[in-house]
Simulated assay, not measured.
Amino acid sequence: MSGKVEEFAAIYQRACQRKGGEAALVALTSKPLAPAGLAKLPDNLLLAELTKKVFQSGFVWRVVRQKWPGFCELFFDFDIEKVLLLSDEMLEQKAADPRIIRNLNKVFTIRDNALMIYDIQQHHASFASFIADWPADNIIGLWAYLKKHGARLGGNTGPYALRAIGKDTFILSQDVEAYLRSYGVFDGGLTSQRSLKQIQQQFNLWQQQSGLSLQEISQIVAFSCGENYAGMQR
Rank of each mutant, 00 (worst) to 15 (best):
Gly3Asn: 11
Gly3Lys: 12
Lys4Met: 14
Glu7Ala: 15
Phe8Arg: 02
Phe8Leu: 09
Ala9Gln: 13
Ala10His: 08
Ile11Leu: 10
Tyr12Trp: 15
Arg14Val: 12
Arg14Ile: 12
Ala15Cys: 11
Gln17His: 09
Gln17Ser: 13
Arg18His: 08
Lys19Cys: 14
Ala23His: 03
Leu28Arg: 00
Leu33Thr: 02
Leu33Asp: 04
Pro35Arg: 05
Leu38His: 05
Ala39Pro: 10
Lys40Gln: 15
Pro42Cys: 13
Asp43Leu: 09
Asp43Met: 09
Leu45Cys: 06
Leu47Ser: 04
Val54Cys: 08
Phe59Gln: 05
Phe59Asn: 03
Val60Cys: 09
Val64Met: 11
Gln66Ser: 15
Gln66Thr: 14
Lys67Tyr: 08
Trp68Lys: 00
Pro69Cys: 11
Pro69His: 07
Gly70Trp: 12
Phe71Pro: 03
Glu73Asn: 10
Glu73Ile: 01
Phe75Arg: 04
Phe76Asn: 08
Phe76Pro: 02
Phe76Arg: 07
Asp77Ala: 12
Ile80Tyr: 03
Glu81Met: 09
Leu84Pro: 08
Leu84Gln: 05
Ser87Leu: 06
Ser87Lys: 02
Ser87His: 04
Ser87Arg: 01
Glu89Tyr: 02
Ala96Thr: 03
Asp97Arg: 00
Pro98Trp: 01
Arg99Asp: 12
Arg102Met: 13
Asn103His: 15
Asn103Thr: 04
Asn105Lys: 15
Arg111Ile: 11
Asn113Asp: 10
Ala114Asp: 01
Ile117Glu: 01
Asp119Thr: 08
Asp119Trp: 00
Ile120Leu: 10
His124Met: 08
Ser126Gln: 06
Ala128Thr: 11
Phe130Arg: 02
Ala132Thr: 03
Trp134Met: 05
Ala136Glu: 14
Asn138Tyr: 11
Ala144Ile: 04
Ala144Asn: 12
Tyr145Phe: 15
Tyr145Asn: 02
Leu146Tyr: 07
Lys147Val: 09
His149Gln: 13
Gly155Thr: 08
Gly155Trp: 10
Gly158His: 06
Gly158Trp: 05
Arg163Met: 13
Lys167Ile: 06
Thr169Asp: 01
Phe170Asn: 03
Ser173Arg: 04
Gln174Gly: 14
Asp175Lys: 09
Asp175Cys: 03
Arg181Gly: 01
Arg181Gln: 12
Gly184His: 11
Val185Ile: 13
Val185Thr: 12
Asp187Ile: 08
Gly189Cys: 06
Gly189Val: 02
Leu190Lys: 15
Thr191Ala: 14
Thr191Val: 07
Ser192Val: 04
Ser195Lys: 06
Gln198Met: 14
Ile199Met: 10
Gln200Ala: 13
Gln200Arg: 08
Gln202Phe: 04
Phe203Glu: 01
Asn204Ala: 10
Asn204Leu: 06
Asn204Lys: 04
Gly211Leu: 09
Leu212Val: 07
Gln215Leu: 11
Gln215Trp: 03
Gln215Pro: 01
Glu216Pro: 07
Ile217Met: 12
Ser218Pro: 09
Ser218Cys: 13
Ala222Glu: 02
Ser224Arg: 03
Ser224Val: 08
Gly226His: 05
Glu227Ala: 15
Asn228Pro: 00
Tyr229Pro: 00
Gln233Met: 11
Arg234Asn: 15
